[in-house]
Every structure is written in structure tokens, then in C-alpha cells.
């Protein structure tokens, strides 16, 4: 299933974006592709709501029936990985927060062919986020990187995509 991943900075600015697709089978349809950043941007509202909740699982955004899905997987005392935070017409949106409140967000699309609802594999998505988090910390350790600036390193890009291939787009 195609995914759209972005790291969002403090001012809603993406500092990194990528689409994890498979050119033969899994791609976002063009009308969705252009909306992706906006869908992701919209779910930041809910991410921020969860960001400051002591028990983000229990206070899940009403209007989605995904609250119970989240509480199953994420452990009760960890609040970095927020699980599925939002949904938008068959798309699922997951979120993750770094300690410096960088927002890692991903739009998961179902298989376009059969239109089945997206099932987010919390375990692999969570480890993907954690690995990217580590790469982000490494980026931050570079004195030539400034907070909230786009991460343009090809190495970073390559690593993230390799991780996505390993964990997401199987």
C-alpha cells in the first residue's frame, strides 16, 4: 500500500516528505496525490490535541471509531507513537512525536484496486517511526543542520526509503 510520509516542523512546515510507492502496483491516484500534503496538514489538528493529553489513547478523537484499535498496541506509558490518529475517506493517518515535538505523520492508503479499508500494522509502523526518529536525531547532531530546516541529505532520504521498503511497503 502506498504511503505518504512527512516530518513537520514547529510552524507546520514540512522538513522532509516522501512517498513510498511501488511503481508497478501501488501508487496514489493523481487526485489523491495532490491532496496528500493537505490531508496530512489537516490531521495535525488532531495530533496536537493528542500531543497534550495525558492518556492519548483514551481521549482519542471522537468521530472515528479507531480509538480502541490504538489502545491495543501502544503501551500505556509511551506517548511518542500515537497510532492511528485520523482517517479520511479510506485513508488512515498515523502520527508520532519526537521529544522536541517534531511531528512525524504518515498517510496510509489502502489498496486502490479492491478499496478495502486500510489496516495499519502498528508494530511495524511504530518501529519505522522509531528508526526514522533515530535518523532525525543524528541529523540534528550535525552542527550544520538548523532546527526546522528541510532535511536535504540524500543519505537520509535513502535510509528512510530503505526502512520504508523493509517495514512498510511489503
Amino acid at each position: 500500500m502506498p504511503c505518504y510520509f512527512a516530518i513537520i516542523g514547529a510552524k507546520d512546515n514540512p522538513i522532509y516528505e516522501a512517498e513510498f510507492t511501488n511503481p508497478h502496483l501501488n501508487q496514489f491516484p493523481p487526485e489523491l496525490k495532490e491532496l496528500n500534503p493537505f490531508i496530512l496538514h489537516a490531521s495535525l489538528d488532531i495530533l496536537e490535541d493528542l500531543q497534550w493529553q495525558t492518556h492519548p489513547q483514551s481521549g482519542a478523537h471522537s468521530g472515528t471509531n479507531s480509538g480502541f484499535l490504538r489502545s491495543r498496541h501502544s503501551s500505556s506509558n509511551s506517548n511518542c507513537y500515537l497510532g492511528k490518529i485520523d482517517h479520511f475517506y479510506g485513508l488512515a493517518i498515523t502520527g508520532y512525536l519526537s521529544y522536541g515535538n517534531m511531528k512525524f505523520v504518515m498517510v496510509h492508503s489502502g489498496n486502490a484496486n479492491n478499496g478495502s479499508p486500510v489496516v495499519v500494522d502498528d508494530v511495524s509502523v511504530k518501529s519505522f517511526y522509531q528508526e526514522v526518529h533515530e535518523l532525525y536525531v543524528k541529523t540534528l547532531m550535525n552542527p550544520f543542520y538548523t532546527l526546522n530546516e528541510p532535511i536535504t541529505s540524500p543519505v537520509f532520504d535513502g535510509r528512510v526509503r530503505a526502512l520504508a521498503k523493509k517495514l512498510l511497503t511489503k
Binding site: 507546520d12 495535525l44 526546522n148
Partner: peptide, 24 residues
């Protein structure tokens, strides 16, 4: 300093959602 946008109200509005739906 990092610019912070109204920290106290964070997450208590749905303005970005609204923007998306208007865009659609």
C-alpha cells in the same frame, strides 16, 4: 528562540481540518 504559536490553545481547534474541507 523557537517561534511558538499560542501554546495554550494547541489542539483545541480544528482550523486545519476546516481548511482541508474548504479546499475540497
Amino acid at each position: 528562540k523557537i517561534e511558538q504559536d499560542c501554546v495554550s490553545a494547541i489542539g483545541l481547534t480544528r482550523k486545519r481540518k476546516s481548511a482541508l474541507f474548504r479546499l475540497i
